[in-house]
């Protein structure tokens, strides 16, 4: 059994991390808060790097990789809070012209009735008629709400890729908290020397690493029950991780300029995708009777 990253997978992850560090660092993230709209140039670069065409077969001009690789890439996107309808466009690659290349931006109507990035989308999948703009809690995710009936069933792959993004955000939250706890001094020592702070950081790691095992395993099996489990663990790791990160940052964590608020708000948006976690819990309950 080799349930760990292969050499190629580690290289892929390193490559994506390097690309994103170069093209979407912390400064770019904060700058993005103050401009509306998507960076289309970056979108095309993502397309050229194979972000959207990753799972499209090579015969059809794609990269020909699988779900585990897609999960690693989306985890990196989640780490840096890369904006845009990434999951919807990735899922549209091969079905919507230009999606694979990053030439068009594709939005999708989610089961919960939400549409992310509707105004920016060149193509909308699902019926977005009558969509009403919300004042989105996340400054980097414009939201619309479609009134009335719920759209079609959720694509488990969309749930899994969202879980991968949550995992990246949970990991990032832990790293930021540890970095702050090492450098911020009170009472004459780094606050990370206090057990109360240490234990917050340790729990963030425990949640993220447990979620990682669940998310990676679901990527290998592609089993809907595994995906439901991964989603619950990843949502928890991201939401509670971002909160704990905020707590470790103290007053600074409550400010607009601090990156932590963006982690938490994005985690909240993603946790609502697919109608929230209740359906996953029900699926996992029924699985126990099998």
């Amino acid at each position: 059994m080799r349930f760990r990253l292969s050499g190629d997978q580690a290289a892929l992850r390193a490559g994506v991390r390097e690309l994103l560090a170069r093209r979407f660092d912390g400064e770019a993230l904060r700058a993005a808060v103050d401009v509306s709209g998507l960076d289309r140039e970056l979108w095309r670069e993502l397309g050229a790097a194979g972000f959207f065409a990753l799972r499209v077969p090579e015969a059809d001009g794609g990269v020909g990789l699988g779900l585990p690789e897609a999960v690693l890439v989306f985890e990196e996107a989640g780490r840096v809070l890369l904006p845009g309808p990434l999951v919807a466009t990735h899922l549209a690659a091969g079905a919507v012209d230009g999606a694979a290349e990053g030439e068009v931006v594709v939005a999708g109507v989610d089961r919960g009735g939400l549409v992310e990035w509707l105004d920016e989308a060149d193509v909308v999948r699902g019926d977005a008629a009558g969509a009403v703009a919300l004042r989105s809690v996340d400054p980097l995710t414009p939201l619309h709400r479609v009134p009335g009936a719920l759209p079609r069933a959720v694509d488990p792959v969309a749930v899994l890729l969202t879980a991968a993004e949550q995992l990246g955000t949970a990991t990032r939250a832990g790293e930021l908290a540890v970095q702050h706890a090492r450098t911020r001094e009170q009472f004459g020592q780094p606050i990370g020397a206090f057990q109360a702070v240490k234990h917050l950081c340790a729990q963030m790691l425990v949640r993220a690493e447990t979620a990682r095992a669940a998310v990676y395993a679901a990527a290998v099996t592609a089993d809907p029950v595994d995906i439901a489990a991964a989603r619950l663990l990843a949502d928890e790791a991201a939401e509670r991780g971002a909160r704990d990160c905020l707590q470790v940052h103290g007053g600074m964590g409550f400010t607009w300029e601090c990156e932590v608020q963006l982690l938490l708000k994005r985690a909240w948006v993603r946790a609502r995708r697919g109608g929230g976690g209740a359906e996953s819990e029900e699926l996992l309950a029924v699985d126990l009777l099998a």
Binding site: A214, D226, A228, L233, S280, E281, L283, L284, D287
Partner: peptide
């Protein structure tokens, strides 16, 4: 739902 969440927990622990 609590049973379902506990199932998720132990599936993750197995992984």
């Amino acid at each position: 739902r609590r049973l379902g969440r506990t199932n998720a927990e132990f599936r993750a622990l197995w992984r």
